[in-house]
Design a protein around this nucleic acid. Structure first.
Lengths: 103, 103
DNA sequence: CCCATGTGTAAGTTTATACTAACAGATGGA
DNA sequence: TCCATCTGTTAGTATAAACTTACACATGGG
């Protein structure tokens, strides 16, 4: 997962809101949807991006009533964005472009 | 300029490429367009976003031949993205939402 | 005068992202 | 059985971002 994709995933205010909410405590999908005020379908798209970028993780649990629930939690992460890290990221995806073009 | 807007501005691979190029040396618009391989019109949109977010700055100069040229250069910046900075950013734009709603 | 270089910008198209509505299935309790 | 809760997913729409094309204008040199 390159820096650009990670930043794209985290740049959205809605997804920041999700991270902030989960940083307070892990929650299952429906409860999170209520707290941030969005549909599960939409939340699903956002959490999918966050999970692919490594910001959150999910685990299937059984609640006390025996119902399956997906619990979401925040992963530890620490991104630094400056000239140096950007230069490195650009070198990385230029290398990837060369591989594709060389076939 | 909030964190979300800054991250949105810098998350694009094309804009990262522009920053990396300008980090090497300041350039005028047409020269930068040639190096990154895009039209001036498109470059204008990208540099506008980068300038609004504070990543680059521009200055109108006169070249040796007396032609007006806009020189672009990278500003110093250092963004940190973790649970703490995201939590702060979310508080900030929730406060803004309240101001709007209170009118 | 015309051409090459530089500047900015408006208008339209295309593509990606965000979002809504609707479906299908499971469990436990009244 | 029916209702409330939970899960996942598809298909369509609406909005935003990215990109192209084309214009207008300035300077210096052949």
């Amino acid at each position: 997962m390159d820096l650009s994709a990670q930043l794209t995933a985290v740049a959205s205010p809605q997804r920041m809101r999700i991270i902030a909410e989960l940083a307070h405590e892990p929650l299952h999908v429906s409860e999170l949807a209520r707290r941030v005020g969005m549909s599960r379908a939409l939340l699903y798209m956002h959490t999918k991006k966050l999970e692919e970028a490594g910001f959150i993780s999910s685990e299937l649990l059984l609640s006390d009533e025996g119902k399956a629930m997906r619990q979401l939690r925040v992963e530890d992460f620490h991104l630094i964005v400056n000239q140096e890290t950007i230069r490195q990221a650009v070198e990385t995806f230029q290398a990837l472009d060369n591989e594709e073009g060389a076939s």
